[in-house]
Write a protein that binds this DNA or RNA. Structure first.
Length: 553
DNA sequence: TGCCGCCTCTC
DNA sequence: CAAGAGAGGCGGCAG
């Protein structure tokens, strides 16, 4: 058996063919861990968690990946060495033997110079870092924080339960939809080739650019990509689609093939034949802000805006007829948290009054009565509100709004005059970041910002936007994580049959046993609203139910 | 085969 | 569309 030693190169060892071989692999792996002084990054026995759930292997202990990456991403954490090594052995050794011949289990090993550890630990949060205890102790700034003990640690089990539970997906429905899409795509292909006067690969941005701007000689006004190609993204093509049918068709083709390949065809393959459900993986410590991420498949980016896309949501169903899906959303959570964190009087007032927030913003900024706000004024106010949450500066705003520059400058000026507290918050946050080198959320989650004092202007302003956005996005993540823990505790205490099955940043989805519906709704609303106590801003939760995810939304 | 650029889907 | 946070499919190219 060979373990890779090349730096930065993973080597994959095929899954053992039988029980005996598996034991040998495990034994060798253990021995290697014991004997080497080298630091191995990602030297876990990787198994496909989906496969584990697929074949119904019980999870053993908490997620090692999650825990270790989390520790290393938080500069203020200190490891509990014995606990980690113990849970590691417990966690990875058990499933591999149970998975023989059933999955894509493989062993990945990466050797990394010791001095690189800290660098990797913070920059590459998605790497699973495995450290020998003696090496572990060298990362001396790490300690267990309250955030870890009270939030992240209890959440591990909630996520494990969610993954294990999974969500029922109607594969038949998707396969039928796939045929429909295939027909439409074929039709689009034909008309595109006809208009282009020949065949080419419509999925290749390079070829699309050459056809449109070289062969067909459509005047090109858009930007170039980093590699000097014509950019053919939606922004560029949408402008041209008004005058050129072929461009419109290419956009349609792109939309449909994205839908087909990424969702409609991919999802049925992920359905576990044992229970008819999809068991996604939720990464607890990958996003720098503290949000979760989802993969294999990603259930946090299922289409909803586009008509053809939202069809896909109909395939997500309750487990059976006795159950119903309940979706619970935080309403405008990030804007509310901006109001809370900045303590801006006008923002708080608008939320407390319970008015349409964008409309209230427009009334202030344009200096008109609430009832006299036009739809255009509201739309502009909404855009500004939205961009504020992303920390976008005034320069970007004028372009976004699509209104004359003088007008937008005026708008932004009025905005910050009206929301002085918000302006102060933005300045103070950047100032804090410059001084301390990090920013933090309401619950004390920290994010370091290396470039906040950079001499590179571009890097610095990016860091400034991050400084403004992270406390907001991160606090929202803290909040829903805490709600998930409280809800999960309440479900256990009340011994309900209903289950939490998905989290999509500001939304929780439950598979509810119908007789429990009212009870569940009461628990969910209460726990979500009061996840973080003592806030000045009201927190609103919207709920919906249905026999599929689209209906529930 | 592996990596990177481009594009597109979500909150 | 972009700007904050992600995942993933595909083409194109180096080795």
């Amino acid at each position: 058996m060979v373990f890779a030693t090349e730096s930065h190169k993973g080597t994959y060892v095929p899954i053992p063919a039988n029980q005996e071989e598996a034991r040998k692999v495990v034994a060798e792996f253990k021995e290697l861990l014991e004997s080497t002084d080298k630091l191995w990054v990602g030297q876990n026995i990787k198994y496909d968690a989906t496969m584990m759930k697929w074949y119904g292997v019980e999870m053993q202990g908490p997620y090692f990946d999650t825990m270790i990456t989390h520790y290393l991403c938080e500069p203020d954490l200190r490891h509990k060495l014995d606990y980690l090594t113990e849970s590691y052995l417990n966690y990875t050794m058990v499933p591999i033997e149970d998975l023989i011949g059933k999955g894509r289990t493989q062993i990945t090993m990466r050797e990394v110079p010791l001095e690189k550890v800290k660098e990797y630990a913070c920059e590459d949060a998605d790497w699973t870092l495995q450290l020998k205890p003696k090496l572990l102790s060298m990362i001396d700034e790490i300690e267990v924080t309250e955030l870890y003990k009270t939030l992240e640690a209890p959440l591990i089990n909630v996520l494990r339960d969610m993954e294990y539970e999974g969500i029922k997906v109607n594969g038949e429905f998707l396969r039928n939809y796939s045929f429909e899409l295939a027909d439409s795509i074929l039709a689009m292909e034909k008309t595109i080739y006809q208009q282009a006067g020949g065949e080419f690969n419509i999925s290749s941005p390079k070829q699309v650019g050459e056809i449109l701007f070289d062969s067909l000689k459509i005047p090109y006004k858009g930007k170039k990509t980093g590699t000097g190609q014509y950019s053919t993204d939606v922004e560029v093509l949408t402008d041209l689609s008004i005058d050129h049918q072929i461009v419109k068709d290419i956009l349609e083709y792109r939309k449909l093939s994205k839908l087909k390949s990424t969702y409609v065809d991919a999802l049925p393959l992920m359905v576990n034949p044992r229970d008819g459900r999809i068991h996604s993986n939720f990464n607890q410590a990958r996003a720098a802000t503290g949000r979760l991420s989802s993969e294999n498949p990603n259930l946090q980016n299922i289409p909803i805006r586009d008509e053809a896309g939202r069809e896909i949501r109909k395939a997500f169903e309750p487990r059976d007829n006795e159950h119903i899906l309940l979706a619970a959303d935080y309403s405008q959570i990030e804007l509310r948290l901006i109001a809370e964190i900045s303590k801006d009087a006008a923002m708080l007032e608008a939320f407390i009054a319970g008015n349409d927030f964008h409309k209230a913003t427009a009334a202030r900024v344009y200096g008109v009565a609430y009832d006299e706000v036009t739809s255009e004024q509201r739309r502009n106010a909404k855009t500004v509100n939205f961009s504020i949450t992303y920390g976008a500066g005034a320069t970007n705003l004028s372009r976004q709004l699509g209104i004359p520059r003088t007008e937008s400058t005026e708008l932004i000026k009025n905005y910050f005059t009206q929301f002085q507290g918000l302006k102060n918050y933005m300045e103070e946050t950047v100032e804090f970041a410059r001084k301390h080198g990090y920013v933090q959320t309401l619950l004390g989650r920290k994010r370091t910002l290396r470039d906040i004092n950079s001499r590179n202007g571009l890097a610095r302003s990016t860091a400034e936007r991050v400084a403004i956005n992270t406390p907001i996005q991160g606090t929202a993540a803290d909040m829903i994580k805490r709600a998930m823990i409280h809800i999960s505790d309440a479900f256990k205490k009340e011994q309900v049959r209903s289950r939490l099955i998905l989290q999509v940043h500001d939304e929780l989805v439950f598979d509810v046993y119908q007789p429990e519906l009212e009870q569940i709704k009461a628990i969910v609303a209460e726990k979500m609203q009061n996840a973080i106590g003592g806030l000045n801003v009201p927190i609103l939760v919207e709920m919906g139910t249905g026999m599929n995810w689209l209906e529930a939304h």
